[in-house]
Design a protein around this nucleic acid. Structure first.
Lengths: 213, 213, 213, 213
DNA sequence: CCCTAAGCGAGACGGTACGTCGCGTCTTTAC
DNA sequence: GTAAAGACGCGACGTACCGTCTCGCTTAGGG
């Protein structure tokens, strides 16, 4: 999608109230539907402006006008289709909430992990997609997680000197690692071990207050 | 590369001693050199059989004969060019050795991180490349790490109940996360925090022996 | 142009006395100017409603309203720009007058022959343009010529049994032949030979009164 | 067609006996057949690389490789389809032979005049086609005619001072004029009048030996 | 020492996708 | 009210790459 439009408010016009004809919303929906169909059935390699145009009964020009690359289109279609609102629970017990959230995350990846993986993969050589992915997926989600962790830190459930951003990489990042570079199983038990390692530490003779830093 | 050939022994002929002309080793070298040139200069999207053939003065047929996809070719060329033997130090002090190794890893990523990222990205929708990547990159490196961690665990530097594979995802996996889904800086200080979090734990009131598991 | 408007009176409004009348004439001039610019600079292939609209600051709808095809528009713009009134002299001496007229014609073709050629060429597969061309160019000019020849025939300067329309094709038509299917030079000397051939005949032993017919 | 290949000898390879695969002759035939089909059924405007490729089951790249423009392709297909060898009779009687030839020419134009007209029209803004048309149609045919006229001139059937090239424009050129800029009928009687005007002259009081020149 | 078979260059070819341009229609808003 | 601005389907343009397929040159064995 063009960067002027946000994923969170896809109905927000963000168009100058100039004279010409307005963007047809049904066209947008048809495109996203066709794209999602291709994406889930045949993979992101087959999400091609040519095929989407043919399936949606839409002109290629229209696609080029509103989306910068097939990857960007696939990305937007993915979220329009799933609307995977990963809410973050807050029961007061951080460890329990993390467990809940990571289990839900694993469940999501089981359903559509390969599609997410393909989108992240495509972003590695599609800077437009990389931008969208960062702004509308990576950063918002990190923010949600850091916010929850921040509350826990303030209430004394996480040590003061722990960098919360780093923690995100050691929980969700570890999951993405197993998704993108598969070798070991990616399941709920794995996330439990991630949490345990961090809460308990791995050192049998814990030092006082991280003297190594 | 075709799976019948191993990366480790690229000079092994493995050809039936039939009559005809032998495989020209200089052809292979020219191809890998041309590929590496394209890969580092223009990204994996421009590593194309057509361009490689033109640059290396080689027929497309030859490429199809020896490599299954442009991605596989790029992958092989990357390692032929870098030969990035990430040795694992063993001074007896695990935490020091991990720090050393991760700092070296970060330094490597600073040089060629974008190329690695592109290769991993391409593997998400190229199963041939995914296979090669798994067999010749992901698994061997995990094995090296787990071996070193195993020694440490046996010598009492890691608690008995810690799963070492999980640890790999929380150290190197966290780095790959920042590489592939960039949002926060990926530097040596980050790896120090990764280590600290795991060695010290994040809980200000550590429980006894991971009662949550 | 739409057939309701005449070439001969391009300044005649012929517009309904509605409100926007004066403005419409501005638009027409801007369009014709932009079209002529494109036509002479880039050839008739680049006279496109899209480009004319952009250059003239005019909506495409306006163009479609007043002209049936880019070819028709180019045709009208050509004459609006040149106003090449080919007057026919009548000094009483037919042969001298024909020489004068054909020399002037050649001079005109030297200036804008390629544009005329392109317009005639386009008319071969644009029936709207073909209609306009016939009604507003071919037939009027033939009529002018035949009228002058008719006077000469009545005054005994052309044999009674000569078909004047045929003569037009052997004078001006021969010139168009060299314009449209170039092989030999198209110059004043050529037109002199055209005239001489017809006035003198080519037969060294002229028959009596065209017995072959 | 590319200028390296001649129309007269379409089977002449004219290809360097280099190493690669040879040009498939059946592909060429399929293309020309499909093109001719389109050309005669729908006009030259519908001879499009896209449609020809689809009809002939041929890749667009192949068309671009061997033909410079749709117009050039149409031109070659026209002659491959018609092979309209306009032979020039020589019975010794020039006037009779010209009549025979021009009647045959008119008959040809009745069949495929509109296609020829479209090709000549397209050549006005397609310099590649213009080149082919000149080299393989206009000039060879002028040469045939001039050759026949030359024989007649040497045998005393045409006055010494008559320029034969000019004569061509006044006979066949006049016919093309009526074809391309239609206003009066183009039939056998017209060609008879063309001949009569030139043989008899139009002047009721013929001057001695073209004194005007 | 030649003969034979494989390796390999060159490159034609059918596809599919790319990104752009023009046509003709339709809609919305501003002057 | 008219016409600008412009979205849109359609179809053609010309290019790039993919994967397959001949050719014919080159080069090593084996006879």
């Amino acid at each position: 999608m063009k960067h002027t439009e946000s994923l969170e408010a896809p109905d927000a016009p963000a168009l100058k109230p100039g004279r010409g004809r307005r963007r047809a919303e049904d066209v947008r929906r048809a495109v996203l539907a066709a794209t999602a169909g291709l994406l889930f059935a045949e993979g992101i390699r087959n999400v091609t402006f040519e095929k989407v145009a043919a399936r949606a009964g839409v002109s290629k020009m229209t696609l080029y006008k509103w989306w910068t690359s097939p990857g960007s289109l696939a990305f937007e279609a993915y979220f329009a289709a799933l609307e995977d609102a990963l809410t973050f629970p807050d029961t007061g017990d951080l460890r329990a909430d993390l467990t809940t959230q990571l289990h839900a995350f694993i469940a999501l990846l089981e359903r559509s992990g390969s599609v997410i993986a393909e989108i992240i993969g495509a972003a590695q050589s599609d800077s437009d997609l990389a931008f969208d992915l960062s702004e509308q997926y990576v950063r918002p989600r990190r923010r949600l997680a850091v916010d929850r962790l921040s509350i826990a830190q303030r209430s004394g459930q996480i040590r003061e000197d722990v960098d919360l951003e780093t923690l995100v990489d050691q929980l969700w990042g570890a999951c993405y690692h197993r998704l993108l570079m598969p070798a070991e199983p990616l399941d709920a038990a794995f996330t439990d071990r991630l949490i345990a390692n961090l809460f308990n530490g791995i050192d049998p003779r814990p030092t006082d207050e991280g003297s190594h830093i």
